[in-house]
Design a binder for these strands. Sequence first.
DNA 1: ATAGGGTTAG
Length: 856
Amino acid sequence: MQQLEQSKPHSNGSLIPSLSPDRRRQPVRCMVICRLHFRLFPNWKGWIFPKNFPWNQARYPSFLAAANSVDFESYGFENEYKGIDYNFLFHSCTKLHLAKQLHALLVVSGKAQSIFLSARLVNLYAYLGDVSFSRRAFNQIPTKDVYTWNSMVSAYVRARRFSEAVDCYYQFLAFSGLQPDFYTFPPMLKACGNLVDGQKIHCWVVKMGFEWDVFVAASLVHMYSRFGSVDVARKLFNDMPFRDMGSWNAMISGFCQNGNAAEALDVLNDMKLEGLRMDPITVSSLLPVCVQSDDVISGMLIHLYVIKHGLESDLFVSNALINLFSKFGSLGNAERVFDEMKVRDLVSWNSIIAAYEQNSYPVTALGFFKKMQLIGVQPDLLTAVSLASIVGQLSDRKISKSVHGFIMRRGWFQEDVVIGNALVDMYAKLGAIDHAHTVFKKLPIKDVISWNTLITGYAQNGLASEAIDVYRMMQECNEIIPNQGTWVSLLPAYSHVGALQQGMKIHGRVIKNSLYLDVFVGTCLIDMYGKCGRLDDAMSLFHQVPRKSSVPWNTIISCHGIHGQGENSLKLFKDMVDEGVKPDNVTFVSLLSACSHSGLVDEGQWYFHVMQEDYGIKPGLKHYGCVVDLLGRAGYLEKASNFIRNMPVRPDASIWGALLGACRIHGKLDLGSFASDQLLEVDPENVGYYVLMSNIYANVGKWEAVHKVRALARERGLQKTPGWSSIVKGSQVEVFYTGNQTHPKHEEIYKELIILTAKIKSLGYIPEYSFVLQDVEEDEKEHILTSHSERLAIAFGIISTPPRSPIRIFKNLRVCGDCHNATKFISKITEREIVVRDSNRFHHFKDGVCSCGDYW
DNA sequence: ATAGGGTTAG
């Protein structure tokens, strides 16, 4: 402006050459407003707005009215106008509402149409983070020059709204009749989303001869390295006539964003050879790569470098460090960096909140959120994502509603899928799976992750078949390509219902895209094969997947456990230690439960000590539960109850449940009723415990007590889970409910059962009536036993599959003792292998014996 | 007055 004023003094002495004479009178209004301000704020000296000018106290409507009523002519406005320092005005606007007031000022004074000032408004709004206002200001400009267009394009780029930036660029080319200059291209190169578009822009750049401008060249190099064109990037970089830190950083950060750590380090090395040192920008590009590639050592080295060169004061570096420490789980360091920051922005707050949230400290995370609000930092979408996850972890339904409302009010739900997915996840974690489904249905766009989240939600709430239904719906809508996450959420559901065929289909599918070598998918497949009775397949798959982490080991140990092969579990654990894989707390849950399934009492107790002494793992409730189960099942009930008494943590329902289960097996009435008393306090809603207790009473014929327990359950509105068994025939799953006679083949099944019972009785089978939990006559008792769902399913298997072929049964509850005994005999006379998977473990019946050795 | 290279996500 200075130049313009000097070069083109207007004929009438005015310094605003581009405005019409009529417009020239407008500055007066501005002055009048300044005067009015002066009246309100007498300490204010002069026309220049001071830095701490109380803009927010200025009420524009009233000022406008006042300004319009003033006789402009009475002011010597031409002279006064000279005194206004617009630069200072623009620089003083550090908050959005100030910018809006300046905008109003400019409109009032007719300056909003000035080609200089209006474009500055576009930039100001962009700088303050409100592109929509930039656009509005932009639209109000009647004649636009290159600078105007450049400002608008870069405003979009700054806001990361790349597609709108590109659109704006093409509007510029099509309608403005102007040529882009070398300010236009760097933002465009940042905005382009793929290599082809980038190359197109490169062509333009060459055509216009801007190729070797430092900024343009750096942008080109960055674009190529970002899209992985290593050679082109390197060639351009080598041909550059002049290189500064920006050029090096462009190259390095491009490779970093591409995830190409090796190339990035290579360039970094070259840079060091030229005697250049990393600056804050280099550091903050490199740190995320350390996080991605799990490279703790490089991360720490960079941290040392940062300390040594005093780069910690840089906002971006500090933020990146918080994320680094958070991902490596060292929250103390993360918080230290956060504390020492002199300036914190939204990213800092989001990072520290996410750090605590992702390391499962929801309470601390929430504390930081509250502190942030107290200071007055406005949360954004990413804050809300963390917040939703925090609420999910806290399982606090009350807060969940307010978080949901908070997100809806700000319109973020419509704006981004991520936030919607976070809400679905939140409700699923709270166990409110219906809410999760409702939110899912309302999502404006559904991506893979939306579907994955819902599938996981159903699966983790124990609704496996619903999870599978969701997957089916996902396939039907055809637009979504399943990914690794889909398999990881779906396969556990298949494991749960024992859907081996479908699971194998997925296995085939993941082999095609090599995902079966992925640790997580591989582990889910191992688990699926193990839980579907294919222990050998699970084992051979285990030998193929990478075994550096504990995850696949934990799974294969647990698989052997549920198959009653505790010795193999112990052996696998030794292998794991020999291969240098560090066991974690999950490993010991698998190992201890394997010991308990196989009656390895001494070994189990030994490893419970090893876990604490050698590996320094503090036992959790799950470990204590395993030990109680281990001792109780083996009949050491006194020892088990002493163990509970000496526990340093308060026993929860699972602990007492394990004790009660053991009492059921060994018929311990007194201890059982003690355990159930505890349970009715801790978890009165769980039917299972009422059933167990009534079973104990029924077993010893205390029918009165049985009725009492049942009445209590009824009073509390609880219903016994109906027992069912299923068998897979072809692709069809046949389900049988205990005592249900509605199956189309019921007549045949029942006939077969009568014959079978007669045959096995001749082999020495004696019905064990203590498993009949009703007070009825003897012959009725036999009928009840033979109509147990597992027996219906076995009989169905015998009549509908070829002789001597194996039969696989799935039962939702634990298999009954009499059925277990009968199945042994059935396997002998039919010469079939019968595999029963119940809610607890596998039973392999062959030749009249069971793999569990009657211990379960 | 406008331009390059940097941090946070389900």
